[in-house]
Amino acid sequence: MISFQNVSLEYRLGKYALENLSFDLKSGSFTFLTGHSGAGKSSLLQLIARLTRPTSGDIQIGNIIYSELGVRQERALRQQMGIVFQDNQLLHDRNVFDNIALPLIIGGYQFDDIKLRVNAALAKVGLEQRGSEKPINLSGGEQQRVGIARAVVARPKLLLADEPTGNLDSEISQEIMQLLKHFNASGVTVVFATHDEHLLQTYPFQRLTLSNGQLVNDESTQSAHGSRKRSSTRKVY
């Protein structure tokens, strides 16, 4: 589903955030994107979300070739993805319901559909009774769950999570992980950037490890379909 071919991202002349990456991720997979701080995890996610453009190389999702996309098509593509951020990026001047409804309003959904989907998303993240609350009144874990609900409310096929557990304690991190696992089980491809060793040890999903902007050999642990095998991170599947 996601294919990177010799992708590089230069942020300053001669300085690369990502260098010559090539890999393929299958549809429906769950992939940990790991590496130290500044390794290029967020840059890679931004490339997938088309928030930034590669200096060279080709990126493809399904039949969509990124280099052929116009600005409008890029935005339309982003509407089909769910993105979860470390700092959850919620709007604190409106309530939880309206935060989750935002992608649907952007997508031009009808009100009845919005109501249905938002309430379904709230139920999935266990916040049915908190829709009318302002995010500031929620705990960090609840806020992150709202972020996840917003990311999945439009039922995307791809969910990008940029260190969503970075600011949360271990117990809440497990809750968030369980949620993402649940969505992955329903067919959503998940790319989860983290450097949380505990999570990486607990959940044996495949890894894509970055170091100084380059993919490094790593032990692939388990595919999204549950089979355990060894493979290069350059060709995860």
Binding site: R94, N95, V96, F97, D98, A101, F111, I114, K115, V118, N119, L122, E128, Q129, R130, G131, S132, E133
Partner: peptide, 11 residues
């Protein structure tokens, strides 16, 4: 209980 079903604003 606060009613989250209809959102906070008008239709």
């Amino acid at each position: 209980e606060p009613d989250a079903l209809d959102g906070s604003g008008a239709r």
